[in-house]
Design a protein around this nucleic acid. Structure first.
Lengths: 335, 335
DNA sequence: TTGAAAGCGCTAACAG
DNA sequence: CTGTTAGCGCTTTCAA
């Protein structure tokens, strides 16, 4: 059997209260007893039970992470950075892939609440505000990453999607592109990026051609079809801004299948700057999100809320960075 | 405050024991009381506390997953499939990226044991057998995935790495390659793959040129340098077998930098068939592991051990599948 | 500086 | 079929 606090107390010839105090570095314990207790704990290889201590109202030191899809490189990287920071602060994290499905979100949340986790990080694009409201009402600490819901005033760490979209578009405009298509996802972040795109066009006194903006259906995998639509138009766009690298790469493949060369005949920009952007050929111009930082900050925020109920609310917006690679190119004059 | 079993009991006018029984569908309860209790639980939005029930010796319904690196696409996919299956069976999973670092492994294991998780899945290439032995002695359920340690007789789900290496090599031999280099990692699985490579050569009555086998140091990121070494030899190999896609892709990039075209001047094979294999150009011939199946099976095994202490031990070996894509090519006669 | 004892929410005999 | 009660391992007053 695993030793309990009673075993330690008995061996050390003290009461369990004393042992508890030395474990938690609480109260005043004489150096002598403290040493003795430490020694016994060591000898017995005693590990306090988090379960028991949680039952008395202490924390479980466990966070829940709701994320759309762990197998997606972007989210996998976020998950990793979150996990690293959590670990540094003494927390474990249980991860749940939601596929952005409201039912799964619900299920996971109930499940994790039964397990008394200390707080939630939502990287999932929670659509149902009700879910979040309930959590807030019950004072469960939450922090969002890579999404924000201004109306609820929840702490969050995001990247300035609007700016990202704006910069991408400006970059393409500078290269001489006027026919810039957009491949978006049905998500808040995509919408912001598209807003940036519109703004950049407007600022350059160009009109927005709505037919160039395609929203991919997030469930079905028919992204290629979408991209295809763009290529099969009579007047093919000279550039595509994809709202994430996955979309960009499906466009890249669709182009390849049609013998359209990138960047000569088509410039392509992605978003997220995942590992995939670096390995395709030509390497993909993409907008980098400071993933590492985002994970770290969101954990810091959540933990501060967990450990101090009325920690200051914060909404952190980090800057995106356009990483220019080989997939974008000066438009030829003659075209 | 969250309602407790007492609140439910009081409202329903029964004892907590009765409530406990309806929650756990144990004992015999009249339909009438059951319905009443259910109704109250619903009205109060009562959620039983896993923490409290765990303290009485029941399970936490939580598994620990030790994995080298969540940000690595191969492991991310495994993690996702494990999580999906666990969720189906009512378990949550705590994920820990170990970087194959023994200290981290130790730390995570202690941490998770304090939290009374029900069992461990090790996808991490645990080197220190002692760690595992301890766990086994203390009867903590464990299952390995993507690695096996025959000496300890631990349940595991793996792919036949030897066969994978063998098939890759045969494929290359059939294409006429004789100078086949290997890029390996310092891991058990790589060693098996290399063993398959050697066997295939031997079976074709070719001698193994040890200088063609390079083992990458897993920590430093100098894979490119390794690949470079191969290209800068006087007699350049005509094919490279990389023991995983990441290595393959660094070789691909090194080749690209040197203007060596694939597959004309160099055939390249990877392993794992991650998403990366599909998106590079040319697409990478790679060995597919049935990741989805592996995750599922390993969870099934672990859960069966958790729920039935003396479930049968199993070591499952699944078959790899060589996926031939554009990166491997018939060697020209004249060369 | 230490210890006795109550209690956290639930389970599992056991008794009725 | 239902209730009483003694823990599970730990924290936390409150006394000593």
């Amino acid at each position: 059997m695993k030793p309990t606090i009673y075993d330690v107390a008995r061996e050390a010839g003290v009461s369990i209260a004393t042992v508890s105090k030395v474990i938690n570095k609480a109260g005043r314990i004489s150096d002598k007893t403290r040493q003795r207790v430490y020694k016994i704990m060591d000898d017995l290889n005693y590990q306090p039970s988090v379960v028991a201590s949680a039952l008395t109202g202490k924390r479980t030191n466990t966070l829940g992470l709701l994320i759309p899809d762990l197998a997606n490189p972007f989210f996998a990287e976020i998950a990793r950075s979150i996990e690293d920071r959590a670990q540094e602060l003494g927390y474990s994290v249980v991860m749940c892939s939601t596929d952005n499905n409201t039912n799964k979100e619900r299920k996971y949340i109930t499940l994790l609440r039964q397990k008394s986790i200390d707080g939630f990080i939502m990287a999932s694009g929670v659509q149902e505000e009700k879910i979040l409201k309930e959590l807030i009402e019950e004072k469960v600490p939450i922090a969002l990453v890579s999404q924000e819901i201004p109306s609820l005033g929840i702490d969050s760490v995001t990247v300035d999607d609007f700016l990202g979209g704006y910069e991408v578009t400006q970059h393409l405009l500078k290269l001489g592109h006027k026919q810039i298509a957009v491949l978006a996802q049905d998500e808040r972040s995509s919408r912001e990026r598209v807003r940036g795109y519109r703004q950049a066009l407007t600022d350059s006194e160009l009109t927005v051609d709505e037919s160039l903006i395609l929203v991919a259906d997030s469930i079905t995998k028919n992204n290629d079809v979408r991209a295809g639509q763009l290529f099969d138009r009579e007047e093919r766009p000279t550039a595509i801004f994809a709202c994430n690298d996955v979309l960009a790469i499906s466009a890249l493949q669709a182009a390849r299948e049609r013998g359209i060369t990138i960047p000569n005949e088509l410039s392509l920009v992605g978003f997220d700057n995942t590992i995939m952007a670096r390995i395709v050929d030509p390497p993909l111009t993409s907008v980098a999100q400071p993933i590492h930082d985002m994970g770290r900050r969101v954990v810091d925020i959540l933990v501060s809320k967990v450990e101090d109920g009325n920690a200051m609310k914060q909404r952190i917006v980090l800057m995106p960075e356009l990483i220019i690679r080989g997939s974008t190119y000066q438009l030829n004059e003659e075209e």
